[in-house]
């Protein structure tokens, strides 16, 4: 499997670490515990199919990436930089 890093180009899977659903990159508002925080931390969708995930290019440019891919077929649709509003 390869990911097409927007900064480095297509790179081998072993340069990346997955970090779960991309919602991780979208921090809810508010400094106190709320239903929104509960959903953010604990209630994640786990689709067998198209999903958005957060990946870290730790052995490359250290960019955090929003990867849109299919968890059933492993097809990758898009790779964006989290820092550029990918989230």
């Amino acid at each position: 499997m390869r990911l097409d890093c927007p900064l480095c180009g297509p790179r081998d899977l072993r340069e990346f670490t997955p970090r779960g659903a991309a919602v991780h990159a979208r921090r809810p508002e508010g400094e106190t515990w709320s239903e929104a925080w509960h959903h953010h931390l604990h209630l994640r969708d786990n689709p067998a199919g198209r999903s958005e995930e957060l990946w870290y290019h730790g052995s490359g440019c250290t960019a955090w990436l929003i990867v849109e891919r299919d968890t059933a077929t492993h097809e990758v649709f898009s790779v964006r930089l989290a820092a550029e509003g990918g989230a």
């Binding site: 670490t17 970090r19 991780h24 990159a25 979208r26 921090r27 957060l54 870290y56 730790g58 250290t62 960019a63 955090w64 930089l81 989290a82 820092a83 550029e84 509003g85 989230a87």
Partner: peptide, 17 residues
């Protein structure tokens, strides 16, 4: 050390770009 570095990168890129 590695975990903190990745965490800082994530906080900056995702939450404080």
């Amino acid at each position: 050390a590695g975990q903190v570095m990745a965490h800082l990168e994530m906080v900056q890129q995702c939450h404080a770009p």
